[in-house]
């Protein structure tokens, strides 16, 4: 039973990835005029353009190039960067880990923090602290991540205090986690952006659950308040919240781009911006696919949580 539901979800995930790959690849077909000329500039000689066309496989029909590219994805071959001439996989190798460190740290802090604060707010709803926290989460949820990041830099790295590095100090090649202090501000920025959404969602869901008949029933059975919340209320809120957490974690994959650019952090985001600036299509395609993969994985995880916390889905599905 359980396996069947998950199997269905897996199939759907595969469908999403295929569709995204079509979209991502299709977009490059929109490149105006001669892609090679666009890349090499107006002064390029015809020989060089022909060579690049050959190198990029641009002479093949589109569908062939698509399958070639898609096949490459499965074996970790993301093609050749048209800007650097090197392999995209090699270019992204270390950066993937650097970005995952950032996202992972942000997720590890903001998910429990968001759930905790949300439950707290729901239990004290209407009170002064609840209102203050709602206001704060509205403010942080509103601002774009680079605004929050610059605010943090102004406070902790330049104008007010100078206790943390404003940018990443690690020289190219050195793993970012060798200097933990340079991770603090980028991680904090992501946490401040992501947590408010989780808090708001958890608060809304918890309030709904706390108003439900079975929570009232539990109280009327004489169940102690702590057990009412932990045993009866919270499990019901987790399923829906997992969905929102998944959306937020997937969003992290996008938000990390700006944050990396701001802090000159050597991750995927930085590579993506470079790719866009130099019109390095292969790099942009590869990163888009990676980001979509992150989306699919976290959503699958949320589905599992949803099924596990809901016996109706577990048995009936």
């Amino acid at each position: 039973m359980f396996g069947k539901v998950i199997g269905k979800r897996l199939l759907f995930s595969a469908f999403i990835l295929i569709a995204v790959s079509l979209l991502v690849f299709g977009a490059t077909l929109l490149l105006p005029g001669d892609a090679a000329r666009a890349i090499l500039g107006q002064q390029a000689t015809p020989e060089r353009i022909a060579a690049l066309n050959e190198q990029l496989g641009l002479n093949d029909p589109a569908w062939l190039r698509y399958f070639h590219w898609l096949g490459g994805l499965f074996v970790g071959d993301f093609g050749t960067s048209s800007a650097t001439g090197g392999s995209v996989s090699a270019l992204l190798g270390d950066r993937v880990w650097a970005s995952f460190v950032l996202m992972g740290l942000a997720a590890i802090v903001s998910v429990p923090l968001g759930i905790g604060l949300g439950v707290y707010q729901a239990l004290h709803r209407g009170g002064r602290r609840d209102q203050a926290m709602t206001g704060a989460s509205l403010v942080f949820a509103a601002m774009p991540e680079f605004v929050i990041g610059i605010g943090l830099i102004a406070i902790f790295a330049t104008s007010v205090f100078q206790i943390l590095p404003a940018v990443t100090l690690a020289p190219p090649g050195e793993p970012v986690w060798n200097r933990p202090e340079q991770l603090i501000l980028p991680t904090l920025t992501l946490i401040l952006v992501v947590t408010p959404y989780i808090v708001r969602m958890m608060r809304a869901t918890m309030i709904e659950v706390l108003d439900s008949g079975f929570v009232e029933m539990a109280r009327l059975k004489g169940v102690p308040e702590k057990r009412v919340i932990l045993r009866h209320a919270v499990p019901h809120a987790l399923g829906p919240v997992a969905q929102v957490v998944a959306i937020q974690l997937a969003w992290l994959a996008g938000g990390v781009v700006v944050v990396e650019f701001l802090f000159r952090y050597p991750g995927l985001g930085q590579a993506l911006i470079d790719g866009v600036t130099y019109r390095d299509v292969q790099v942009v395609q590869a990163i888009s696919m990676l980001v979509a993969a992150v989306y699919v994985v976290v959503n699958l995880a949320a589905d599992v949580v949803g099924i596990l916390t809901n016996p109706k889905l577990r048995s009936a599905a």
Binding site: F12, L17, A19, A253, G254, V276, A292
Partner: peptide
């Protein structure tokens, strides 16, 4: 819809800017 949701908006915008 789900397919478009799989790519964060900012990444989507970057993809479009690369091309256009």
């Amino acid at each position: 819809n789900d397919v478009i949701l799989a790519i964060p908006q900012l990444v989507f915008a970057l993809l479009a800017i690369t091309v256009l």
